[in-house]
């Protein structure tokens, strides 16, 4: 920076500018917040309304039917045969949680391999990862099902969890992240200190990549939580103690006659709660914890 604006002389105007700017930003953010929240608010409000209120139109004012709707979900045989929110949440947590952990760890590891080391197949490997990322997935269902049938893995969590180890897009993200902000010198330093490669990765690199890990953990968790398509393919028999939250919600939504919309919305509402909680917990890492891991010079 050759142009030097002295901090002291301009202090007053500068402060004012900051305040003005902050106010403008603040207004814009509030507007965005409203746009983001209104539809979700409607969804939540609907969970507190009765069936007849819902079919008569949208409202922004909560009513007192939530308990009633919960009761319907619990007692009406149309719902309670398959809608067990606690079991669904447990199953979804197992799948989304393990996927999230595996995908972040192994993607980090793969990216680390691609960035830190030089080897003959490095570029081909990266190009391969990029290429498979670009293949549309709609057509792969038949092949995937045949594979699972041959491996006898239908109605198993394995094909829902293990493939998370190989997530091309996340590897790509981690690689780009490391390229932009990972100081390779630190690895040299660790080597000199006698640290072996895996320990370097585990104890030095992972903490430094915390923001990337946290971001991808959130994305992975939420996308796996909501991954109705694959879950319904693999858990083909829909066993009540095995199915996941989105599968249950989908069954609720699919009740096309005699449905109680209040109960339907309550089911959707219940399915969102854990995701929001997890998101808020994990987002702390992005919001607050970055500086802790970074390289201080």
């Amino acid at each position: 920076m050759s142009k030097k604006i002295t901090y002291d002389s301009d202090k007053g105007g500068y402060q004012n500018k900051v305040i003005m700017k902050s106010a403008a930003i603040y207004a814009a953010l509030i507007l965005l917040t409203l746009i983001c929240l209104v539809p979700i608010w409607i969804l939540i409000v609907n969970a507190t309304r009765s069936h007849n209120e819902i079919i008569s139109g949208i409202s922004l004012i909560p009513k007192g039917y939530l308990a009633e709707n919960m009761k319907t979900l619990k007692e009406n045989s149309l719902y309670n045969k398959f809608f067990h929110p606690l079991i669904g949440m447990r199953n979804s947590l197992i799948i989304a949680g393990l996927c999230c952990g595996l995908t972040v760890f192994f993607s980090g590891m793969t990216a680390y391999g691609l960035v830190v080391y030089d080897f003959k197949l490095k570029d081909p490997a990266f190009v391969f990862i990029l290429a498979v990322m670009m293949v549309p997935t709609q057509v792969t269902a038949v092949g995937f099902m045949k594979l699972l049938i041959n491996m006898n893995l239908l109605d198993s969590y394995i094909p829902l969890i293990v493939p998370a180890i190989a997530a091309p897009a996340i590897v790509f993200f981690m690689r780009q992240y490391m390229l932009s902000s990972f100081p390779l010198d630190i690895i040299e330093a660790a080597r000199i200190d006698g640290s072996n490669e895996f320990r370097t990765f585990l104890t030095i690199s992972i903490p430094m990549m915390k923001p990337a890990f946290a971001v991808q953990a959130i994305f992975a968790f939420i996308s796996k939580w909501n991954d109705y398509y694959n879950q319904s393919l693999v858990l083909v028999s829909g066993k009540p103690n095995q199915i996941t939250m989105p599968m249950m919600v989908q069954k609720v939504i699919a009740i096309d006659r005699n449905a109680d919309y209040g109960a339907n919305y309550t089911a959707i509402f219940l399915s969102i709660i854990p995701v929001v909680v997890i998101y808020i917990i994990l987002s702390r890492f992005i919001i607050g914890g970055v500086a802790a891991g970074g390289v201080k010079e």
């Binding site: 192994f106 993607s107 793969t110 691609l114």
Partner: peptide
């Protein structure tokens, strides 16, 4: 090590 790190994927 490069190969080992990318192998699981």
């Amino acid at each position: 090590y490069g190969y080992i790190f990318i192998l699981p994927f």
